[in-house]
Simulated assay, not measured.
Amino acid sequence: MNNHEIDYKLYGDDMQFVEIELDPKETVVAEAGSLMMMEDGISMETIFGDGSSGSAGSGGGLMGKLMGAGKRMLTGESLFMTTFTNTGSGKRHVYFASPYPGKIIPLDLSQYRGKIICQKDAFLAAAKGVTIGIEFQRKLGAGFFGGEGFIMQKLEGDGLAFVHAGGAIHRKSLQQGEVLRVDTGCLVAMTADVDYNIEMVKGVKTALFGGEGLFFATLRGPGTVWIQSLPFSRLASKVFAAAPQTPGGGSKGEGSITGGLFDLLGGK
């Protein structure tokens, strides 16, 4: 096995966090900013890329690290990742939290032929040795018009990886030739054998007034897909639309009794 063998435990329901148990010298790599807490005896190191070919100070070569960092820039992620290594003599624990309401999905890559393709912002953490790269959709049209679903991440290796998704998660196994059409933002992850494409919504009225955008992802089996009920982009748009749009950015207490009286009295 090339990846570090880590143990884990999930806590919570709608706002989950994961506890990862590290034996001495074991390492987990995570997105910057995902750390919740860690026990004494764990050392942190900021690195370029995913650290699969060595840390920032050893191995991999400068060009390899720069290429890895450049690929992460294309997905909109940070140039840097953080490794957490148990430098003590006994077991230690490190904890990573979900960035918004949803679920954490543990994926043993060895059970999925060593590769999972996921949304560009879904990755949370993984065992040291898992490679985090980018997966381009083969058809050029999907690249220009596919929205969220075009540039996706690929996780490769034989160890554990953790991805995060919003709302409730539905895992669906597709049979040979079975087709599933999904909103591009709702697709969380899929196995590498799923045939993936972007299709335009048919019908001008549907495209203009349907409220679901102009494109959706077409997934053709065989393979396994993970679907989320609440993409972060959808959550953010609703929060932004509901936010009070006052000149000073202040709130008039919308939704409260005092806010309603303030409006009736002509307050500004």
Rank of each mutant, 00 (worst) to 15 (best):
S53E: 14
I20L: 10
S110D: 14
G143N: 06
N86S: 08
R113V: 09
Y100K: 01
N86W: 06
V163W: 05
T85L: 03
Y11L: 07
D13W: 07
W226K: 00
G211F: 13
T27W: 03
A122Y: 06
Y196F: 15
F209H: 07
H4I: 01
L79E: 09
A217E: 14
G90N: 13
D50F: 08
M73L: 15
M15V: 15
E156C: 10
F262K: 15
V179E: 14
G149P: 03
V179L: 06
D195R: 12
K252D: 11
L10S: 02
T191D: 06
K128E: 08
M38N: 01
Y196P: 05
D183F: 00
F240D: 11
I257F: 12
V163N: 04
A192W: 00
D50C: 12
E135I: 00
G59M: 06
Y8A: 01
H170A: 13
A125P: 05
R181S: 12
F215E: 03
K172A: 03
L264C: 08
T191C: 03
H170N: 13
G203Y: 07
Y11W: 13
G248F: 04
T27I: 12
I105W: 05
S237V: 11
S256Q: 06
G255W: 02
E148S: 15
G249F: 02
M38P: 00
A126D: 06
I105Q: 12
F136Y: 09
L208H: 07
P24I: 06
A30V: 01
